[in-house]
Nucleic acid binder design. Structure first.
Lengths: 232, 232
DNA sequence: ACGCAAAGATGCAGAGTCTGCAAAAAGTGC
DNA sequence: GCACTTTTTGCAGACTCTGCATCTTTGCGT
C-alpha cells in the first residue's frame, strides 16, 4: 500500500483503469452492434487488446462488463448525501445528490446511450443490472441513517457487497425507516430514468425527475381508512 | 386410467409441474447443503430423476432454478389488486393482496426457508432474484393503472417479460404515477421481508409489514425523531 | 383397443464460460 | 541494475448451454 502519489496515481493504477475502461467500451460497442448475446469474451478482449484470460481478472462474469458501468457513482452519491445542508430532508438530500450525478453522466452521453441500447435489447442483462443496483441500497440506507441524526457511523468499511461476512451484522443494526427511505428513493430514481428513457424526445429529464420526487413528497396515495392486513 | 380429467389438468401438465417442482426442490436442497456455487446441473438433474439435458427444457439458465420460485405468485397478486374493494387506495389494495400471498407462502415454510438461506449465502443469486422481481413491476403498474379509474385495460396479454416486442409500447402507454406506485409498493414489500428475515426471532412479520406500509402512508419524510433504533 | 400426431425426454457434438496454476512480463523501490 | 510485487498470459480442464436427431410418452379420434 504505497500511497503518497502527488499529482497522479501510479502508472500501474492508471493502466488498470485504462484496461478496464477499454474492456467496457469495447464490450458496449460490440454489443450495440451485434447484440449482447453474440459478443464473446474473446472478441471483447481482442478489441481491448488484452488476452481473454485477463478479462476475467477484471470481471467475475462476462455479463458483468455490461452491468458495472456506474460502479463508482453510487459512492459519490452517498458522499454528497452526507455533505448536504442539514435543512434538507433525507429524501431531498438524496434527490439533489442523484441529480448532480445524473447531470455528469449526461456528459459522457455516447457510451451511456449505447449502454441503454444494449440493455433494452437484452432483458436478461437489464434484470441483472437492476439487481446490481439493489446492492447499493444497503450502503445508502446506512448513509441515510447516519445523516438522520442517529449519528452512529455504524461501519466505516464501504461497499462490502451483498454477501460479505458482516453484511448480516450491518443489516441488523439498521432501522426500518432508513432502509425504507433508501429503497423508495432508489425506486423513484429508477422510475424517473426509465420513464424518461421511453420518451426521450418528448420530455426533459429534469422535469420528469422533479415531478417524480414531487409525487413522492406529496405522499403517494390518498390515505384512506384502515383495512386490517390479512392477519390470520 | 383414462378418464376425462375432472378437476385436474391432463397428465402431461401434471407431470411437467411435478418435474419442475422436483428440480426446484432438489436444487434448493442441494444448494442449502453444499453452497449454490458447487451444485452442478448434473447433480440437480440426477437428484430430480431426469437427464441434464431436460433441465434446460425447464430453465434457461442454471441460476434460474434458484430464482423462479414465486413465479406465479405475482400474477395472483395482480388479480387480487383488481378484485379489491373500490374504497381502498391503490397502495392499500396492493398491501392486502401481498399480505394474503405472503400468508400462503408461510405454509410452505420449509422450502422457502431453505431458499432464503441459499440466497443469503450467494449474493450473486440474490441480485439476480431481485432483478427478476423487477420484471413484474411493469405488469403491476399496468394493473394499478387499470384500477385507478383510467379504466383502459391497456393490454390483455400478460407477463410478456422485460424484453418482449411490445414491451416498449406498453411502457409508453403508462403514466408516471402508476409506475411510481408499483415501484414504491414493491420496494416496501421487499424491505419489509428483508427486515423481518434478519430478525425473525424478535418480530412478528405481520407487525413489520404493517409498520412499513404505515410509514409509506404517513408520507416518508422523516420526523427525524427517535434517534436510537429502539430495538433489541 | 388401436394407431397417429404432438409434446417431452434424452444423448451427443460443439461452442462458450470460467477457474487454478505456473511462467513470463511489467511496474516499483532501492 | 537488482530484488520485489503485481499483472498478464497460456493452458488444461470442468461446467454451462444450444442445436439436432431420436426415442418414449401422452392425448385423442376411430
Amino acid at each position: 500500500m504505497t500511497e503518497g502519489n502527488p499529482a497522479g496515481v501510479g502508472l500501474r493504477e492508471r493502466k488498470k483503469r485504462a484496461t478496464r475502461a477499454a474492456l467496457v467500451a469495447a464490450a458496449v460497442r460490440l454489443a450495440a452492434e451485434h447484440g449482447a448475446e453474440h459478443v464473446t469474451v474473446d472478441a471483447i478482449s481482442e478489441a481491448a487488446g488484452v488476452s481473454a484470460r485477463t478479462f476475467f481478472n477484471y470481471f467475475d462474469a462476462r455479463d458483468d462488463v455490461f452491468v458495472m458501468i456506474g460502479a463508482d457513482a453510487s459512492a459519490r452519491v452517498r458522499q454528497a448525501v452526507l455533505a448536504a445542508p442539514a435543512e434538507l430532508s433525507p429524501l431531498e438530500a438524496l434527490r439533489d445528490a442523484v441529480a448532480i450525478e445524473l447531470a455528469e453522466i449526461e456528459q459522457q452521453q455516447e457510451l451511456w446511450r449505447l449502454h441503454a441500447e444494449v440493455l433494452r435489447h437484452s432483458p436478461h442483462l437489464l434484470a441483472r443490472s437492476l439487481g446490481a443496483h439493489m446492492a447499493d441500497e444497503l450502503a445508502l440506507a446506512e448513509t441515510l441513517a447516519e445523516r438522520m441524526g442517529a449519528g452512529s457511523p455504524l461501519f466505516a468499511g464501504d461497499r462490502a457487497g451483498l454477501g460479505s461476512p458482516d453484511d448480516e451484522r450491518r443489516r441488523r443494526a439498521l432501522g426500518l425507516h432508513p432502509r425504507l427511505l433508501a429503497a423508495v428513493g432508489i425506486a423513484a430514481v429508477r422510475v424517473a430514468v426509465e420513464h424518461w428513457c421511453v420518451r426521450q424526445d418528448e420530455l426533459a429529464f429534469a422535469d420528469v425527475f422533479r415531478e417524480t420526487f414531487d409525487h413522492l413528497a406529496a405522499g403517494l396515495p390518498a390515505p384512506a381508512g384502515p383495512a386490517g392486513p390479512a392477519d390470520r
